[in-house]
Design a protein around this nucleic acid. Sequence first.
DNA 1: GCAAAAGTGTTGTCCTTACACCCATGC
DNA 2: GCATGGGTGTAAGGACAACACTTTTGC
Lengths: 246, 246
Amino acid sequence: MKKKNTDLVFHEPHLIKDAVLLVEEYPKVPLTVDCVIFGFEENKLKVLLIKSDLEIYVGKLSLLGDMVKNNEELDDAAYRILKERTGMNDVFLDQVRSFGHPSRHPGGRVITVAYCSLLNINHHELKIHANDLHWHDVSTLEEMAFDHKEILDVCYRWLQKRIQEHPLGFNLLPDKFSLRELQNLYEAILGVTLDRRNFRKKFASMELLIDINEMEQDVPHRPGKLYKFDFEKYEKSKRKWVGIDF
Amino acid sequence: MKKKNTDLVFHEPHLIKDAVLLVEEYPKVPLTVDCVIFGFEENKLKVLLIKSDLEIYVGKLSLLGDMVKNNEELDDAAYRILKERTGMNDVFLDQVRSFGHPSRHPGGRVITVAYCSLLNINHHELKIHANDLHWHDVSTLEEMAFDHKEILDVCYRWLQKRIQEHPLGFNLLPDKFSLRELQNLYEAILGVTLDRRNFRKKFASMELLIDINEMEQDVPHRPGKLYKFDFEKYEKSKRKWVGIDF
DNA sequence: GCAAAAGTGTTGTCCTTACACCCATGC
DNA sequence: GCATGGGTGTAAGGACAACACTTTTGC
């Protein structure tokens, strides 16, 4: 890893005995994790943000982030931050990518690894309001602290793609849900309107929704049927898709 | 970013004036980039590897990696390493994800960001052979140094998905290529066999191949037509796909 | 009875798949 | 002339898009 191509070619490489000494020579950088936590409420996609507590970003919004501790696994750091900020631990987090522009942080070079999650706002009341933690509409985002707007945009596009290929959305609906709720969710995240009949047919043909023979309660219109998602069947039937499409 | 939820709630947060002081308190970690460089030759997918120069990994294979320099952008580090090792700079690199298990490196904690590339072996003769740099068959990989086998597996799956959705493959074919060469490429990367007629129909219907009215030369069978890929048309026609499929 | 959303089917189009024969070239 | 891969067409099935009316409930 450390040999440079200025070394003579065809030498037997001398082996490095002490890996610790080697690593000690590497430049070291501060490392953080930023969590982009999307939630859904009132048929709108929201994202969990705080106010930055850096003076130069006064009034600007920021993602939930924190340093990664010594010897802390990246995934663990993301789950820890999510738990510290929201009290939740039953949420899936996915690493999206890392951001390392040298001037992305005003305090000097800081690398950050972005994680993305999607959860049901009504399942997780915010008990902590430090730094004005709140759900913010995704569609009305102004300037943000650091490069957090860019990170959020990347994660939003990632989420839009992801939700079309994976049943992410069901973690964010109530356990029992109507097809209308499901469709609202997809429309909100993808930013499109979908044909209701075709949407229903699509999910009917997948055969991954379990009709639990219950109806919506207390709705001001004809109640719809309620379904559960068949996670077990989904796991068994994950197909390996091969097809060229660009 | 630094406030803990043990702070009293509903306080006006005190603003941090000096971001540099803040960042100085963050733990710092060594950061590397590892490049997973796939190439194609003799109808086989290969990957560029070296022999590890760490004594505890003697004889084991390793990805092309190096430290990220102070104030070096992550992407720049990846391109630099690719250039240093292979002399190339006309190659696309994509960041795949970061790996940060605390014990992934025997010299202590090192975070690495994996980048992936795909190139034409015959366009880029290896002039450097330090550390036994060579193209290795992807299908016959044994144990590797560090967690490089895991990184390679993740990048391979990433590549398989990517090549179905983006015209990556054309960077690795000759400028003028036959449909057979194109199909060999897809079959090698996806690890499947494809119906020749349907494959050709697929690309014909995309209308992204330019028939240049030339034929293969010096082949021991009926020569095939040669095509170029219409990158310009592709860029213009990138479609935003919406469809649920899992 | 009115507002609001649930529920439902058909048709045309396009894409995908499976499959077999003749053609051009090098040797 | 034989071996090798190039080139082509069709039929069936499945997926998708477009589209309108009746039903159920709360108020």
